[in-house]
Design a protein around this nucleic acid. Structure first.
Lengths: 355, 355
DNA sequence: ATTTTTTGCGTTATCGATAACGCAATATTA
DNA sequence: TAATATTGCGTTATCGATAACGCAAAAAAT
């Protein structure tokens, strides 16, 4: 509860000098600085956040660089929602948060978005570097601090922080849940297999999830085969068509289906259309998509895994603000908890927790 | 970004009057009030939280009334940890949070704690009313605002909020997970049963959890019997003794064990002592107890359900502060998300999320 | 009719950090 | 040596909300 005035008095120096020392704002001697730092320690001085916030009328500008909301099955929409929620809170303090969306399948779009963000008077950036190679060069030559969200580029050590998920582990978890779901039916017949649905596009996390799932299934249920269905378009009808094709080609139904992202909802609607025999097939996927929870509530989808992308987005912005404006220490790496959602607990997850 | 001065000017009135109207601090006419309210709406005025915080040098005092940390298998320690974390943040703003612990098995201790809290100059209370009948009378006659945590007293409508858990639903979820775990072994023999461990003491949530579990198991696996073991002391050795007794009396091992609280860790240590045949029995319980995660990591405990009591405590205090000091609107009812923890995701839950 | 109380409103010091401004004293350059 | 630049430090207005203080005018009580 010591004020700057207290520190100044204890050091036998003026407030102005103390302030200059704290903020390293030139024009002071190292001697007095030492003295002041000692007094600060002794009095356990912490700046009053309110006084600071009040004085700082300066409007802070932050930029967000992430894929279009519709991409990856609406995943980015969820992230963006959390970002907007945090932005809302910060805007009311006179700050500005600018979003630079890009097409995650286009190199030029990605580069444009990032250079757009860089060319403004941004003080910090929240970046989803899902095209690391397009972004690396630009990020190596900037002094603007940035936080990575969702994907990390480990070799860019100048990042302030990374907030994301352990996607391989989530695949392993999906494998475990699948093994429980199919335990009852397994080994009652020959040629049993689990269908792995690989969503369109290539994506670090998707690959990791699938790899983790495979790893677990091969280790625990080696007798169950895994078949992969690669989708080419992020579109409900496309999924239905591909599934139908698959069904006619393979007359034997899978004993379980794993979808590596929110396309699980497309699969659910297909299975429900096909009748009870299909909709009772164990089905695991990712992310709670607002408005589509009913497939979980009905039990067509058995488990949904999520790392709450909204909260990821929300916390990303708050971390940026904490770091740059409040000058707080922030965690270098935040891994989101891996939640298991099922019909019995989904209602406790809709709507925000925290924030 | 409108200030109070802007509002005053727009309404053709002084700042002092605007302030009086906002805070309902007597001495103004309803006419001008109407005018001011209109200007506030028009200018979309939001008070500057920093200016407010800066001016408010007044030290706020809050009280917390909850059971001793050791009770209910260490559950309250977790709640208290979250409370202390929030308190820490608030104390640095010059506030004071006082904890009044009580013995949840003693009526007089409970009454003493609550009247202790009430007799101070507390501005708000966070209360765990796990002895509703002892607390009701006192709470009906106070004007100090309070928030209930963990347990609710629905008929006390004057509460500011309730933050807690849906315990019956968590029992149902436990039932679902149990049914998956035992699916493989079920119906291979006669007289199969699941053991339900009822921890010492009578507790609203414990009863609900067990009731929910029973409900699910009876509905989905009626052929599996449920046997109950009632423990009398919250003590690891006591549990081991009772389990040993049970084992000698019933030569047939259970095909699954459900413990309605964190005593699941006592059961895990017993099963591990008894060898592989025992430690592979499906086991479900509650709460992550710091330092005892290894039983989950080894897989002796298959699933842990938790509603993150630390976060409950943390949020309870923050809600109190938001309501009383910042005069924010707070949710009347906050139900914590129901998390499923298993060896594949426990590492993402240790340590705080949010805060 | 006079005194007292109440009501309505304006003015202003204050909270703590910040950064602009100003003034010496010292150092550097011409 | 004189002119200029740099360094070190003190003083003070400012951010916006708050609440104490003061002063009239109106209302109530005597």
């Amino acid at each position: 509860m010591a004020t700057m005035k207290d520190v100044a008095e204890a050091a036998g120096i003026s407030i102005g000098t103390v302030d200059r020392i704290i903020h390293n704002r030139g024009r002071y001697s190292e001697e007095t600085a030492e003295l002041v730092r000692k007094s600060m320690k002794e009095l356990n001085y912490t700046p009053n956040i309110h006084a600071r916030g009040l004085k700082q009328t300066k409007k802070h500008i932050f930029s967000v660089v992430l894929p279009h909301r519709e991409q990856d099955g609406g995943y980015w929409r969820l992230v963006e929602e959390g970002i907007l929620k945090a932005a809302d809170e910060l805007i009311s303090f006179g700050n500005d948060i600018r979003i630079f969306p890009f097409d995650r399948y286009s190199s030029s779009s990605c580069i444009d978005a990032l250079s757009g963000a860089l060319s403004t008077d941004t003080e910090g950036m929240l970046i989803a570097p899902c095209r690391p190679d397009d972004m690396r060069a630009l990020l190596e030559h900037t002094n603007i601090p940035y936080i990575f969200i969702d994907t990390n580029i480990p070799d860019l050590k100048r990042r302030t922080a990374y907030i994301g998920q352990d996607s391989r582990q989530s695949g392993i978890l999906a494998g475990k849940l699948m093994s429980l779901l199919i335990a009852r039916n397994a080994s009652t017949g020959q040629d049993q297999y689990v269908l792995v649905v690989d969503p369109p596009g290539s994506n670090f996390h998707l690959n990791n999830r699938i790899e983790g799932f495979r790893y677990y299934m091969d280790a625990v249920m080696p007798e169950i085969g895994l078949m992969t269905l690669k989708a080419e378009a992020d579109d409900e009808l496309h999924f239905h068509r591909r599934l139908k094709e698959f069904q006619t080609k393979n007359h034997l139904l899978p004993i379980g289906i794993f979808a590596a992202n929110s396309s699980v909802y497309y699969i659910a609607s297909f299975l429900e259309k096909e009748g009870d025999e299909c909709s009772s097939i164990p089905l695991i996927g990712y992310d709670i998509i607002p408005g589509r929870e009913s497939a979980v509530e009905r039990g067509t989808i058995d488990f949904i895994l999520t790392q709450q992308p909204e909260i990821q987005g929300y916390r990303g912005i708050i971390m940026l603000y904490d770091h740059i404006v409040l000058k707080k220490e922030v965690n270098k790496e935040v891994i989101m908890p891996l939640n298991i959602i099922t019909r019995e607990n989904i209602h406790t997850f809709t709507g925000y927790v925290n924030g």
